[in-house]
Design a protein around this nucleic acid. Structure first.
Length: 192
DNA sequence: CGCCGGATTTAA
DNA sequence: TAAATCCGGCGA
């Protein structure tokens, strides 16, 4: 997994990787790549601010932001330090700690969609702004570990970025594990 | 300083 | 299909 390369290559490489916090382990099934000021869909589109500062940092850090007044979104910072880019974790499967996840999600039973959606992923891991900037490659807290990459990868346009300029809206920078059901809007994806 | 709207989720 | 809910970023 090379997080220092171009974000559109780092993003699909994160599929199958593991997010571990305490007794909970999630396997990444869906991601989206976001670039720098040239990407009109990215938080970095208006340059560096206090909120998006982690995107300029070294790869392997977390970028957490609050959205729609109620959801936290987990991103993995990629690219060399100084080059803003991040990968939004949009979906995951529960590998361990199901009871903890069910409690955090306030749900009685596990379905394939339990952690399908970026807000759900952060909630399942119990994340909030306190994890913004956290080093995911160091032991403790929240960690990113190596997992087997999926045999089939799907790609398609990013979701919820209707505000972006023309070409940025259709660029196939959303990636998913072709074998997982923990992926939203599977129909808008095609084999990579 | 005030307004606009969002990398969403949920339930009706 | 709409409501919930709040703060970042922009224009004044």
């Amino acid at each position: 997994m090379n997080l220092a390369g171009p974000v559109e290559l780092a993003a699909p490489a994160l599929l199958g990787q593991l997010l571990v916090r305490g007794d909970v382990t999630l396997r990444v099934t869906e991601v989206e790549a976001y670039g720098g000021p040239q990407d009109s869909a990215s938080h970095a589109r208006h340059g560096r601010t206090a909120r998006n500062a982690p995107m300029w940092g070294p790869p392997g850090r977390a970028y957490l932001y609050f959205c729609y007044g109620m959801h936290w979104m987990l991103n993995v910072v990629t690219g060399p330090a100084g080059v803003p880019s991040a990968v939004l974790i949009r979906g995951a499967e529960v590998v361990a700690g199901l009871d903890t996840v069910l409690g955090r999600r306030s749900t009685a039973k596990a379905t394939p969609q339990l952690c399908a959606g970026p807000g759900k992923v952060a909630q399942a891991l119990g994340l909030d702004g306190a994890f913004d900037g956290h080093d995911l490659l160091a032991p403790g807290g929240l960690e990113l570990l190596e997992g087997p990459p999926p045999p089939r990868i799907l790609a398609g346009p990013r979701l919820g970025i209707g505000f972006a300029a023309g070409e940025d809206q259709t660029r196939p920078w959303r990636f998913a594990d072709g074998g997982s059901r923990a992926v939203l809007h599977r129909k808008s994806l095609l084999p990579l």
